[in-house]
Amino acid sequence: MPSYFKWAVFASIAVLSFASFILILVAMSTQKWMTGKILCKTGAELVNATDPELVKFMGEIYYGLFGGGKIRQCGLGGRRSKFTIFPHLVKKLNTALHVAIILFLCMAFSFALVSLAFCIFNIIKVPYRAIKGPAGIALWNVLAGGFAVLGVTSFMAAVKLHNLTERIANFQENVFQFVILEEQYEDSFWLCVASATIHGVNLLLVAISTIHFPKRKTKTEEANVAAEDIMY
């Protein structure tokens, strides 16, 4: 029973590690990390717009790690546009922080794959001491979860401390100035949060796999022991 239990735990960790890899990959490939409402401040000030009229100057914006789009409302109807972060827009942002976010997430899904590989090695009992047992699996899950947390917190820092949404909204805007009315984290951001949570669950499963269950002796074993005792 203990061996089957440990096999089931390692298999569960492998499935969760693969799920974490997929979640981060999907999150990085989508453009819905953040959405928000933007106000065309310049247009509203030109016509002295009051509260009911401000609706005509409110647009929307969404973006991810590599691109996004916005709807500009400057009193002339909505105008849609799309943009890419690289190679031009990133120069207007905190370049080091934005690149660090991407690198952190790349490291996170890389270590998630390593954790998956270690689980498979332990399931098939590859005889390498360096990768056998729960210690190696725990190590790689700590690294994967840690880098996922770093990526998420760095993105939050870019949004809150470095006005990421406002900088993106005003990219290549020479005439109009936009201010941010609302910001909301979207599904792609929460996928990375879920990925970090998965590695926390994996660490709990690793701890459970170290539990030693007492072995039950069969009657045959008891009989053999008794016979040997008689002989000696």
Rank of each mutant, 00 (worst) to 15 (best):
T218D: 15
F189T: 04
L143V: 13
S115V: 00
N202D: 14
P134N: 03
S195H: 07
L164T: 00
T153H: 01
I71S: 10
W140F: 13
H162K: 08
V55H: 05
F147K: 02
A227H: 07
V193Y: 05
K160G: 00
A19Q: 05
M1Y: 08
L25Q: 05
A223G: 02
I120Q: 08
G75A: 08
W7Q: 07
E45P: 00
P87L: 07
A196G: 15
M156N: 02
A117K: 03
T165V: 01
Y62R: 11
E186M: 15
F21V: 04
C74V: 13
A27D: 05
M107D: 02
E166F: 01
S20Y: 04
V15Q: 04
K125P: 03
A100H: 06
L205K: 08
L113N: 04
P87H: 10
C119K: 11
N122G: 09
K91L: 00
G59A: 06
A148T: 03
I13K: 13
F155G: 01
F66D: 11
G36D: 05
I24K: 05
A27V: 13
Q184M: 09
E228A: 10
A194M: 05
S12F: 15
S12E: 14
F66R: 13
K32R: 13
G67C: 05
K219Q: 11
A226Y: 08
L76T: 09
F155V: 01
V99E: 12
L89Y: 08
A117W: 02
V175S: 06
K215Q: 14
L76R: 09
V26P: 01
